[in-house]
Design a protein around this nucleic acid. Sequence first.
DNA 1: CGGTAGAATATTTTT
DNA 2: TATTCTACCG
Length: 741
Amino acid sequence: MHNNFSQLNSEQKKAVTHTEGPVMIIAGPGSGKTRVITERIAHLIQLEIPPQNILALTFTNKAAKAMKNRIHKITENANAFSIWMGTFHSIFAKILRKESHIMGYTPYFTIYDNEDSVKIIRRIIKEFNLDKDMYNAKYVFARISFMKNNLVDSKQYNIDQDLIKQDLINKREEFKNIYTKYCNECHTSNAMDFDDLLLKTHELFKQNKNILEYYQSIFKYILIDEYQDTNKVQDAIIKQIGRKYQNVCIVGDDSQSIYSFRGANINNMLNFKMFYKSVKEFKLEQNYRSTQNIVNAANSLIAHNKNKIEKTIFSENENGNKIKILKYANDREEGDQISDIIAKNIVKNKKKASEYAILYRTNSQSKVLEDGLRKREINYKIFGGLSFYQRKEIKDVMAYLKLIINNNDNESLIRIINYPTRGIGPTTIERIRKTSEKKNQSMWQTLNSPLIEEINVQKKTKNHLTDFVQMMKKLLQLIDNNVFEIIEELIILTNIIQKLKEDPTDENINRVNNIGELVNSMKMFAERKKNNTLLDFINEVSLDESKDDEKTSQDYVSLMTIHQSKGLEFPYIYIVGLETGLFPSQKSIQESRLLEEERRLFYVAITRAINQVIVSHAKNRFRFGTITQSEKSFFIDEINPLFIEELTYKSKSISLNKKNQEWKKIKTPPKLENRNLRKITKGISHIIDLNINQKIIHNIFGEGIIKKIDNSNGNQKITVLFVKNGEKVLLTKFAKFKIIS
DNA sequence: CGGTAGAATATTTTT
DNA sequence: TATTCTACCG
């Protein structure tokens, strides 16, 4: 256990060792930011600061976990894991659960995700009999979210004459009532949405001096990563808790601020110096990640932004190749050809799939790339998009689990009271809701009381209701059992899986498999030594979407949105869909503030690369079910031409006939690692050549042997006996597996 | 109440 | 296009 800063440059070293007072570290891309943060915290611990007095807020929980491990390694201090480290949301959820009674919640409050919130708002709009076009639920939710992130709660909204006047002009004068009702609904459900986790924390500290003082004295050293992406509430909370010791260290890069749609405000970073009297500022300007060409290209792009902190990012690595700009006829060709280039590099040039990442502006762009990679049997992994816990069937099961923890959660109750169908329809649900509302209580409280008799429904329906209550009561008794026992019992009592199996469509088979996966993960969760209760489980999955099993040995191409690529690096970066209207997005083009953010987004994308950046655009693209034409993004032309070379891909037909393929030079000769383009294996059919008793390896279930193949209906179904997971029916169209014998 | 067919809607990005 | 929502009939 000794200090070893020898590998840090002098500016990094200063940033690590200057521990007292407010500090601002401006860290350009690839400047060793993560190292500086971990070393800084490790340094504090080595200075005998108790780890439980350190608060470190990161952008994702995954990053927090990785950092904790590294700090633990450096310091060899067993207590290193008691640092308060995590996202704003997860840390404050922890505090709120502890102090919930003061805020009028129980410690078991549910956390609603955006889908839940929108559904509630949609119901309110319907109940108010409002025009669905004037009051679009998603728009209303976005506005509520924006208000919360700017410290305007529903009470304040109602007395803010400017806002009310504005709504009146826009003919949305009911907004304030929807906002109020939504907050009430959440409160009776004993639930908070994502924004509440921040807003209520701020309120808690504001209204309770003693509690604020307690946390001020606990958090002697505060460190916040990615400060450029904090919003007003987050900034305000930091000001609250940092006031006592003022040991607040913020780290970030204004040029990488890409979350303004979530209320993030670069000014939090720019104003930091004005709030504290003596801010010590460090600039990490040397990029150790990328080639000089990449850094220069990125610099020339970001120079077009006006609103930024001046700094000079430079690289002393080798010059490297120019950025390649590839032009395709349409999105299919783009996906196909890029897959082809990557596939060839992997097969012929012995590159690893994990050296490649494909980045895009919108999730929907992943599809063509997926097709291309799958066709060539290249391993890939799509990050984000529909996360596992957002799938319908998983959310259904989770709703039961949430209800066990928090019976008052109306949203979850409405979701599952008739799923699987048990004769309780919309009319009945509406009546329960009305009765409950009158009594100012949750729907479960109504059902679980003599009041159930007052609900005006037919006798048959009433029996269905009491059956449901009986079943739920059985489940509620299990609350302290281990999570695996709970889920097993739940599946038996509710018949969820059985019902799905009765109607074995492709989709339902997939659902059963997904629920199976959930059961598996709960089994693993139950085997933990501590923090393995149902509440722990729900808490973890509500806030930590990245439940990636850290099996890093897997070799795959990474596909993700640029937003998700923040903080990551790859040797080869492909950025697809560089077309005006898509990137920059249509909505951003008129407003310079938004356009600058899109430019920063492109900047982030380029600076993920270590060796080479390849950018592509297509003339025609399939969007909203029709083909749209678009032009090369003007962002490309903003890069100094010295650092790019443009190529165009010629093919006369989409069937990609061998003879029609050639690369046409626009400026400099193509130096692509793969010059000889081959014909593509034809066929989009999902029937794969498989044999009984063949061994396969599945990305989730592991190794198994094919027992049955069913090629009817053009959808190939195979029954596989897995070594560890038993027999499963898979659709080869969806399943991700490899043949190993 | 349940199921289905046809309509409506969405494509910016996420804790 | 893909998914989710709504209306209507059995």
